[in-house]
């Protein structure tokens, strides 16, 4: 009986302490090497888009971004540049807005259409309706990039993180994480930096 009591006490203490110590916040979602699920989401042009639609793709830059986040806005032009550079090499950008329009009204489908037109997005900009896709990927913020490589077994996650190392000033960028990763992937070389962290707006 006494043992059970100690056991119970310890369980309680353990439960409390496991909350009080650092909880890995990113323990869900994909890791490097995982196979990413395809999706079927509505684009700003009203058509449904899936990764499987891109028959000739060698990979994908799945980027979770939105209308409202200043960091996402700071990277919009760089996302367009990425699509321009890599679509022709078989790695198109697929942008997904993971925010719930109910919680973030300016991230509504209509507002996405306006933003896409204003900025002249050359890539699909999809709404994660029902917010089912971003938790599977493990996206936590916007912008959050997932580089996938199309392989026989499926779409393998090769890079997760930020676009580059300076959101403030593109001219001061020292490491272009995404470009380095895509170049290495296409060249059949090892990707040197596979995950990076950045401040971003938490997904609402």
């Amino acid at each position: 009986m006494k043992t059970i009591r100690i056991f119970l006490l310890l369980t309680v203490v353990l439960a409390m302490s496991s909350f009080s110590v650092d909880i890995p916040a990113d323990d869900e979602g994909y890791r490097i090497g995982d196979l990413a699920e395809d999706f079927n989401l509505k684009n700003v042009d009203g058509k449904m888009v899936s990764l499987a639609d891109y028959k000739d793709a060698r990979g994908y830059l799945v980027i979770f971004t939105c209308n409202t986040c200043p960091y996402a806005q700071a990277y919009e032009d760089r996302i367009i540049a990425l699509d321009k550079k890599y679509k022709k090499k078989g790695v198109p950008v697929i942008a997904i807005n993971p925010n719930s329009p109910e919680k973030s009204p300016k991230d509504s489908f209509e507002d996405m259409q306006v933003r896409a037109t204003e900025k002249g997005f050359s890539f699909p900009y999809l709404l994660d309706e029902g917010q089912e896709i971003y938790p599977k990927y493990g996206a936590t913020r916007t912008p959050h990039v997932f580089l996938l490589e199309k392989k026989d077994k499926g779409n393998e996650v090769r890079y997760i993180g930020a676009i580059d190392d300076n959101y403030q000033d593109e001219t001061s960028v020292e490491t272009r994480y995404v470009e380095d990763a895509v170049d290495a992937m296409l060249g059949g070389e090892e990707i040197r930096i596979t995950t990076t962290k950045a401040i971003g707006c938490s997904i609402k």
């Binding site: 916040a25 990113d26 190392d165 300076n166 403030q168 950045a198 971003g200």
Partner: peptide, 19 residues
Amino acid sequence: PKQNDWIPQVNEAWSGAIP
């Protein structure tokens, strides 16, 4: 701006999302 360097120094598990 060198967020990838300092975010893990605040906490290893932090993805960078706020709050």
